[in-house]
Each structure stands twice: as structure tokens, then as C-alpha cells.
Amino acid sequence: MPTRTSTKHSHDDAPDTAESFSRLGSMPDGPGRDALRDEIVEAWLPMADRIAGRFRNRGESLDDLRQVAALGLVKAVDRYDPERGHAFESYAVPTVTGEIKRHFRDHMWTLHVPRRVQELRNRVRVASQELSQTIPGRRPTVAEIAAHATMSEEDVRAGLEALDSFSALSLDAELPGSEDGYSLSDALGSTDPALETVVDREAVKTRLAELPERERTILYMRFFSDMTQSRIAEELGISQMHVSRLISRCCGRVRDQVMRDAA
């Protein structure tokens, strides 16, 4: 591992690897270059861990954040060009930070939320945490958060809604205060079987209106009032056989007309 020098750096976890990077750039691919690359990555891991620690308590474990930060560090080492004249730390910090933010954006949000709303969520979350230290016993109001974070109340509401979009609740999760294991899935409706007949109903509506009044009455009594043919015959003073023939004839006529309309 490269030794530290007395050169002053912005952080204690910023080792002096300038010479190592210079040698790395001149070495051909092979085991020797891979070993030196690994030494540089290992030397800068404390810095990556420090950056990962800034994102703790945001719904992801610190160990996973450290792994993501380490991946960003590896990318920074591979892409860094010392000939540009910039210190490695100034290049690595935004690279590692960007990798962690990308991880939150691409893997942590259950629902797709625009980046602007994600930023509003973070501002609202930080402001709420800070206010909760000074307002014990209750949650800060929208107006209080807006004033503290210098945001509009509309943006605060969008951020608060995004707080609930970070992770989804299972449909099998028991609702708070429910009894007998009542869950979200128990509150969901089901598909109305009558939806399958909507098209058919609309298709015959016009043709039914064109039938003579007595035929319309018979069809209404049979199919909407669920009356038997004998009961219809008794109501209208005709034979049951006559009722049966009228129903068959009307249904056949309407069906033929609807089929022609659809052709």
C-alpha cells in the first residue's frame, strides 16, 4: 500500500497516491498493474466509506452503501487521468457521490418519481428531522417545513407525497388497527362481470327501441324482471306458446340487425 507523505490534504482519509497513479498509467496490462490498481483502491476506501456515511438512514443499509461507494471508487480510479492536473480526490468525490445517488434513483424507489420530486423529498425529509428536534410531541406542519426549508407549500406537499413513494406496502400487509388480519387486498374491488356485456347492451339498445311496444314489454318482463313465460302470458292475457314465439322472433330479429350493423 502506498505510504502517506506530509503533504496537506483536505481530509485525513486522502492518501498521497500521485506517484502510484503515475506508475499505473505507464504500466502495461497484467498482474503487476492489477496489483497496483488494487492498492490504490484500498488506500482510498476510507474516503468512499465516509461518503457512504452521508447517506445513512435513508432506507438503505450502510453496508450496501459502502459497496456502492466502493464501486464508484473503482470507476474513479480506472477513469482518472493525472495528466489533467487535478487531484484525484477532486475527481473521486463527485464520482462516488454520483454512483450512490444513481443507486438510490435506480434501485431504491419502488415507484418512478421525477428527479425534481426526489430532490423535494430529500429537502422535506431533512427539514422535518431538524424541526422535530425543536417541536417535540407533534409533526411539523406544511407551513413550518416550507419556512424552514425556504420552499413553497406546494413543493412541500409534493415532497411529503414522495416520502410515501420510496417503498411500496405489500397488499398482504395487515392494516394498522385492523382486526382478524384485514389487509389491503381485502379492500380491493374485483372486476364487475357485467362489464363483459356492456358492448352487447349498447349494440342492442337502438334495435330494442325500434320494436313494437308489446314486444318490448315482453322482453323487459322476461329478461329484466325475470318473469316466467307463464306469468307473462297471464299478465298479457295470451297463451304461453304465443309468448315463447314472440320472444324467439324478437331476439332473432334484433340479433340479425346487430350482426348486419357490425358487418
Rank of each mutant, 00 (worst) to 15 (best):
E19H: 07
C250S: 12
K75L: 14
L208C: 14
S225G: 04
E154T: 10
S170G: 09
D261R: 13
V68Q: 15
T110Y: 15
R33A: 00
L175Q: 03
N57S: 01
D164C: 01
L111C: 10
G85Q: 15
K101C: 12
I218T: 02
Q67H: 12
R138H: 01
S10T: 13
H107R: 12
H86F: 14
R139L: 04
P176W: 04
G98A: 15
E153L: 10
L219Y: 10
S225E: 09
A14F: 08
Y91D: 07
D180W: 05
H242W: 02
S244K: 12
S128F: 15
R115C: 07
T95V: 12
H112I: 02
S230M: 06
L45N: 01
L171N: 05
A147Y: 03
E161K: 14
A92H: 08
F88G: 03
F104K: 10
T141F: 11
P46T: 04
G32L: 09
L211K: 10
Y91E: 06
S244Y: 11
H242K: 12
R222Y: 10
D155L: 14
T206E: 13
G189S: 07
L175A: 00
L160Q: 06
D64A: 07
E119S: 04
M151G: 04
L246S: 15
V68I: 11
R214K: 09
P2H: 11
V199D: 09
L160E: 01
R121F: 14
R245Y: 08
Q240S: 05
D29G: 05
S6V: 09
S26A: 03
L62E: 14
R50C: 01
L195R: 11
T150C: 08
A43Q: 00
M241L: 06
T5N: 06
L236R: 13
G59D: 02
S6R: 13
A194M: 13
S6Q: 15
R37E: 02
D38L: 03
E196F: 14
T150V: 09
S225W: 15
D226P: 02
T5G: 10
G25K: 04
L188P: 00
F88Q: 11
S167R: 11
R66V: 03
E215R: 15
G177T: 01
E174P: 01
L160T: 01
T7D: 09
W44K: 01
R231P: 01
S167V: 04
H86G: 01
H107V: 03
D34S: 07
K101N: 11
R216F: 07
D49Y: 15
E161M: 12
R121P: 00
M227P: 05
L184E: 02
G53T: 00
L62Y: 12
K8L: 05
